[in-house]
Design a protein around this nucleic acid. Sequence first.
RNA 1: GGGGCCUUAGCUCAGCUGGCUAGAGCGCUACGUUGACAUCGUAGAGGUCACUGGUUCGAGUCCAGUAGGCCCCACCA
Length: 896
Amino acid sequence: MSDSSTRHELSKRYDPSGIESRIYRRWVERNAFHVEADRAQDPYVIAIPPPNVTAALHMGHGLNNTIQDVLIRFQRMKGRDAMWIPGTDHAGIATQNVVERELAGEGLSRDDLGREAFVERVWGWVDQYGSTIIEQLKTMGCSCDWDRTRFTLDEGLSRAVREVFVRLYEKGLIYRGNYIINWCPRCQTALANEEAEHRDVEGKLYHIRYPLTDEPEAWITVATTRPETMLGDTAVAVHPEDARNRELVGREVDLPLAGRRLRIIADEYVDPEFASGFVKVTPAHDPNDFEIGRRHGLDEISVMHGDGTINDLAPAAYRGLDRREARHRVVEDLKSLGLLERIEDHLHAVGHCYRCATEVEPRLSLQWFVRMAPLAEPALKAYREGRLRFHPERFGNTYEHWMTNVRDWCISRQLWWGHRIPVWYCQECGEVLVAREEPAECRACGRAVEQDPDVLDTWFSSWLWPFSTLGWPDRTADLDTFYPTTTLSTAPEILFFWVARMVMAGLEFMDDLPFTDVLLHGTVRDARGRRMSKSLGNGIDPLEVVELFGADAMRHTLVNAAALGTDLQLDNEDLEGAFRVGRNFTNKMWNAVRFTLPYLAAEDLRRPPDRASLELTDRWILSRFATAAASVTDALERFRLHDAAETAYQFVWSEFCDWYLELVKGRLRGESGEESRLSAATSLAYVVDGWLRLLHPIMPFITEELACHLPGRSDDDTLLFGPWPEPPASLHDAEAEQALDELRELTNLVRNLRSEYGVDPARKIDVIVANASPGLGLALETEEAGALRLAGLAALAATDAIPQGEPGAHAVMRSGSEIFLPLRDVVDLERERARLAVEIEKLELQLDQARKRLDDRTFTERAPDAVVERERDKRRSLEERYARLREKRAAFAEAD
RNA sequence: GGGGCCUUAGCUCAGCUGGCUAGAGCGCUACGUUGACAUCGUAGAGGUCACUGGUUCGAGUCCAGUAGGCCCCACCA
């Protein structure tokens, strides 16, 4: 690679376009993200939550994948074999819906094509668009091991799915049966419990009279929210202890409209306090009624087709009506029969399909299920024993609750797109064959067999993701090396769908947790606090953000806004505003490095300069850098990415740029001699290299680009593999920090006074310092020139005592050092006296507080010594400043 | 019905194990084109940390309750 690509003058503004794609290409060309199993000594592994193949990148992806990339890059720089497995999910219903919609545009349905052609069509779609999101992840800078990209429906993963199905079946953990499941009448498939989203709906509660068979003038009243299901009633139930109603148990009622006789039965399920205490029992259309029905051996009459229309088991008048129309008709008919007692408003939760939001229909049907309790037990144990950790911790409660109340998982879907259920039925003898490979014939009778037409829930493949992607069920080197993975980062809403199930599968099939730490990030919201969504049209397109401000700016903004466990808000109507912080920061970094480049010593950037040869300011920035680096490292290790971003930002901007660069400018130009220049140049080089590394996980492009320009570096060098900055503890320098703190305080005080008295910024003024503390003395000894420049001073003089009563502005520092600006032309005596009075008053308040505390015996006795000592220091400092300021004021009074 | 979270500056939010004068960014005010950066610099205004009580030498931080907002789970029709 030649130098020509990057070795040019840096532009005045940072322009990420061009740079980012060039850098990414360079990484890919050297195959930098790939890790070979046989060379991985210390693996750190993340399996990406595979986005749906139908997906286009949204901010939720942006956030989650930034988080993962930060973690991966951090660990890679620390020297670990960081491997990030990418891939996509075939997303059964979602993808099938997309292609069906496409077909609908051509006036076709999937039935027009037939199963085979339809599936082929979906594959075609996947081939064409399925890698869109993968490409978009690259634009964001994600450092996935692209060689390992997997798809939940590829050959290897399909084999894993069949293997798992067969094993669970043989273990008795998969069964088939007729149960009430959640049915989406639009998608026309079964759903898992988790796939039905409960939402409150304003409904009605209908009170309906069922006449007693042997006493036609008398009736009982049942209450229902779904009158149309009465067509499938097969009993009426009361609570066995219900004093009001229990003598009716055993009698019969005439079911209106359907003309069927129903027995009144007693069942504990019924709440005797609710409404009249009678419940109509519809075993085929309600999960509770189903249970009652099984307990009492009731008929299960399903009165609906899969599409939600009434079927032939209902009276002719209702056949073919949609469930809504049927409800209306039933209510009207009951009204005209005088059997509708009343209708009340009723708020209740109704399940909705998580893919198309259609109201779910509880429906009796023959499906395949996984018995979950035996799988949940070890998964729960792992959490309780602390082997599985959640960040933030509170999600552990949610996990525990779900695990302890887990219900069997309906895994069959009446779709065409997905893993075909590996079960074959003999048409002759009814034999059921569950097999890894398609059987040629029935093992019982030798006749032809036919495969179950259904496919598996898409999560039935994703729950195997952490090991199926590594080659399982084969015992591969990848599997040995990279399983278990380390961290999982995802959105809390798929805790049950995916995270919990992966834990179960990992423990069941690999005998080990799939990961040890689960990081659950917040939700991205719009300016009004609403969740960003396609339907609301309030999303922000990450690609547009990258285009406008660069991936680094976006990543920084996202990480910076996403404190652990909190949602983040981004203004979708003001992109510029939303990403300003990150964008401005990239520009700041760019210019900071651009400025330093000509001055950097071409020493070994990675070796901290020897302290003995350094000047105070250099020792100070090295000390600050050591603190920042330790704190960023700690934050990243604890998944507190936000803190890491914040710390690095403050260090670079507020300490490095605002103070260090400003202070050393003159020295870098050689104004203080060669030795001084060298001290600054070597320190600068070490610190710049260091903070570029600290920021690389969050902002990989700009840091990589800038690092290439450092002396002795070329395009062939990269920050990818570290080393991660681990400055020696010896860089911590209390003396330098103390001195520079005082220097900064002095500068701030002078600036403040200048501003208050409206001194022309261009005007150089003098300052007199008296009673300088050792720290300030030390600072001025070496940094006088810097202080003069930053405070806009012409000269700085030290004396033993400030001239008494002379017109000018006064201040006293925390250390007790005094400052005097002899500004006889601008300082108004009256005003200065008033200003001092205000200062004195403020000090008095603080002093009172400190004294009160220290006078309190319980405080001095019970608080830790260190706290008490600090308080004493504070009082001492306050007393000193107080005394000095009062002197000033007194002097003014005399002078007047 | 159960569980969890939130309420801190005009706005968006930090503040982890309780301890110096509660922070950041944006916005606002005043001033500034001193050769890194106007995507900038300097200074400043702005907070009874929702409310009430408790624990403690000490509470934004811990506990209880109140009010408001949000989320998850749940088979009372």
